[in-house]
Design a protein around this nucleic acid. Structure first.
Length: 710
RNA sequence: GGGCACUUAGCUCAGUUGGUUAGAGCGUCUGGUUUACAUCCAGAAGGUCAUAGGUUCGAAUCCUAUAGUGCCCACCA
């Protein structure tokens, strides 16, 4: 027995070394693993973490469970490929570096574009790979030799090729459109990058007088300052109160502009007064109304969140909030403010910096969705791509069926430059992430033949071998941002869906059901758990909680349970090895047929076979809680509490030497199969035990052992 | 406004297609253990399965409604 077999299992002493041994062994790469499953490939797509990030609970859960699948597949003889990498995360990274520079009193604009981008690269070199090192602590079996970054040189070519392709098809256009604008980041954002929060504000009722009349119409608004940009007032065509007035002219207060009273059925009769001011340059609904009625548009707020010269010198350059005060003051003076009501409404924020979004018209680049969205819809409808759990299909379809064109330009400096001339803009980060499943495999370089429109006709090497991939796993929050876009991109450029299965894993919440967030102080750092309990216990704890619900409340008890379970496995191994069992063959089970088995032996072998069947099935169905529970009950109760206890007499006071040897052999054999089954879940301890077992013809590592079958 | 999920023991949760006394871990209580493990073993207490109806021989499980919790999408002029 190995002297290192202490009474207590000490994960800290060994995990790092084991991981290092795996990594240098080359077995994380598909070309080095066993090839006894007809050389079939199995590919998993990692969601590349942001280079600004730190490992959080969501990463830990997601990668732990993909690792379970991937390790099992590898043991089953698939050529497994799981490519790691990082995402340049345009806005997020730019903000982080800006903040860092601010501490040194350096402003981005003072540096200028190229110096700033250099600073970001420096930052990336220094901190950008920290998160991947944290991923290693979890024990995930990814192929580091193929690691990618969404802004590396080959990736730039992929992005350029994709953009050119879309442009050639006429699917990319530049347009003066209403976009979500973040004044703090000074960039446009896509609809998905806007978050909403309920806030209490006011509803101001303002009188707009009819031209050449003492009569007036009252409109209600939450943003009185935008009235300076009104070009119409709209009512519902069926609204009796206003029917006679439709088509008449109103005079915009303060400005004096003559604007029409129009009818549009989008207007809700029951809100406010039923009459709505129309500000096409600063509201999406108004923008659409203006398009339908050919209204003019007056841009009164600029990209810095200040009033433009369109509003006259009294208001020019004021911040919107200052303009609001001044507008209200003047309206009061002219007795045009009818009343003020308290009003709760949802306000849009930038998802990166939380600043208020200022909707405004701006010249941006868009990718048409009318051809691409249907591709993604069809792939799932036809069953080419399956969602687990299936309920995610509904929101997926719903989103794609109501999609707007994708605003792909961003007015920041860190990102893929727009491959066209005369633009300072960069592309939305997600434009590059959308290409991830095939870009990481070598597209477009590894297309031997490629059609004029840049479709890959004959993929070579990795692209030929590992595309389409088998599995992508993600949090629900990036279903639209990432999953949908990978699907239509993959079909468009490769002619095939990028993956067969999409597993949407639950969101990890705190024990009392709150969001885990660093800023709220509710986050639990998985690295602390790994430090305290070991990576195996942490993985076990998370997997134990991963059922079919859309969220899980994280409870440290389950990690403690994992820790105890590891200790139990450790000590069962100690017991078995302590009594110097005879060496057995790796395929010992074949001999069992000829062996004289007693009731206890038959029972444990039966239970083992059931466990093999169940665990295999549960992993295939993403039922990680059931898989871990099955293993836990089998090993702890069936094996330890029952079989091992009963074996003691047969080993210590054997009726015959034969029975002693048989019992010891079965103990060793069941342990051997158990740690193989447990390995995908708790890879470190099982590897360590494997190395100590007296088994003939072992592999070099348990990670390339054969997965038990019945 | 639309969609999804959840409500089971003090706490965190399991309960495949409806079928014997509803399970686990933690916590509590009782007892045990001279060599695998006190991070252990044996056992106990503790649940009107959110509420109200319905379907059924039979419902935690299926249906309807109600209440509460959480998430997502749309949007609030």
């Amino acid at each position: 027995m190995d002297a290192s077999f202490d009474k207590k299992y000490q994960p800290k002493e060994t995990e790092e070394k084991i991981y290092h041994d795996w990594e240098i062994s080359g077995f994380f790469s598909p070309e080095n693993t066993r090839k006894d499953n007809n050389g079939k490939a199995f590919t998993a797509v990692m969601a590349p973490p942001n280079i600004t990030g730190n490992l959080h609970m969501g990463h830990a859960l997601e990668n732990a469970l993909v690792d379970v699948i991937v390790r099992k597949k590898r043991m089953e003889g698939f050529r497994v490929l799981w490519v790691p990498g990082t995402d340049h995360a345009g806005i997020a990274t730019q903000n982080v570096v800006e903040k860092k520079l601010a501490k040194e009193n350096i402003k981005r604009k003072d540096l200028g574009r190229s110096l700033f981008v250099n600073k970001v690269w420096e930052w990336k070199e220094q901190y950008g790979n920290i998160i991947l090192g944290q991923f290693k602590k979890l024990g995930i079996s990814v192929d580091w030799t193929r690691s990618r970054f969404t802004l590396d040189e080959n990736y730039k070519e992929a992005v350029k090729t994709a953009f050119d392709h879309y442009q050639k098809l006429g699917w990319i256009y530049q347009g003066q459109r209403l976009v979500n604008w973040c004044p703090r980041c000074s960039t446009a954002l896509s609809d998905l990058e806007v978050e909403y929060s309920e806030e209490e504000g006011n509803l101001w009722y303002i009188k707009y007088s009819l031209k050449d009349s003492d009569n007036y119409v009252v409109v209600a608004t939450t943003r009185p300052e935008t009235m300076l940009g009104d070009t119409a007032v709209a009512v519902n065509p069926s609204d009796k109160r206003y029917k006679k007035l439709i088509g008449k002219t109103l005079v915009l207060p303060i400005i004096g502009r003559e604007i029409p009273l129009i009818a549009d059925k989008i207007i809700d009769k029951d809100f406010g007064t039923g009459a709505v001011k129309v500000t096409p340059a600063h509201s999406l609904i108004d923008f659409e109304i203006a398009e339908r009625h050919s209204l003019s548009s007056v841009k009164i707020i600029n990209e810095f969140g200040r009033m433009t010269e369109e509003v006259g010198k009294d208001f020019k350059d004021l911040k919107t909030i200052e303009a609001r005060e001044k507008v209200l003051e003047q309206l009061k003076k002219e007795n045009l403010l009818e009343k003020i009501e308290k009003h709760t409404h949802s306000v849009s924020h930038c998802y990166r910096c939380n600043a208020y979004i200022e909707p405004l018209t701006s010249s941006q680049w868009f990718l048409k969705m009318n051809k691409l969205a249907p591709l993604a819809i069809k792939a799932v409808r036809d069953g080419k791509i399956r969602f687990y759990p299936k309920r995610w299909e509904k929101p997926y379809f719903n989103w794609l069926e109501n999609i707007r064109d994708w605003c792909i330009s961003r007015q920041i400096w860190w990102g893929h430059e727009l491959p066209i001339k005369n633009s300072e803009d960069v592309l939305d980060t997600w434009f590059s992430s959308a290409l991830w499943p095939f870009a990481i495999l070598g597209w477009p370089q590894k297309c031997k033949s490629i059609a004029n429109d840049k479709k890959c006709l004959t993929p070579q090497d990795d692209l030929g071998e590992f595309y389409p991939t088998d599995l992508v796993t993600s949090a629900p929050e990036i279903l639209y941002l990432w999953i949908t876009r990978m699907i239509f991109s993959g079909i468009e450029f490769m002619g095939k869906e990028p993956f067969k299965n999409v597993y949407i894993h639950p969101v990890v919440l705190t024990k009392d059901g709150r969001r885990m967030s660093k800023s709220l102080g509710t986050g639990i750092d998985p690295l602390d758990l790994i430090e305290k309990y070991g990576a195996d216990a942490t993985r076990f704890g998370l997997l134990w909680l991963t059922g079919t619900n859309q969220s899980i409340r994280f409870n440290e008890d389950s990690v403690v349970m994992g820790q105890k379970f590891c200790n139990k496995i450790w000590n069962a191994t100690r017991f078995i090895l302590l009594n110097n069992p005879p060496q057995i063959d790796a395929d010992f089970e074949k001999k069992l047929v000829q062996t004289d088995l007693d009731e206890d032996d038959k029972a444990i072998i039966d239970q083992l076979k059931n466990t093999i069947k169940s665990v295999s099935l549960y992993v295939e169905k993403f039922r990680f809680n059931k898989a871990t529970e099955t293993l836990y009950n089998f090993f702890w109760h069936d094996f330890c509490d029952t079989y091992i206890e009963k074996s003691k007499d047969k080993v210590f006071n054997p009726p015959s030497e034969e029975i002693k040897i048989k019992t010891q052999s079965i103990l060793l054999y069941v342990l051997f199969d158990s740690i193989k089954l447990l390995h995908p879940f708790i890879p470190f301890i099982t590897e360590q035990i494997y190395q100590a077992l007296p088994i003939k013809n072992k592999e070099k590592f348990i990670m390339i052992e054969k997965w038990p079958t019945v």
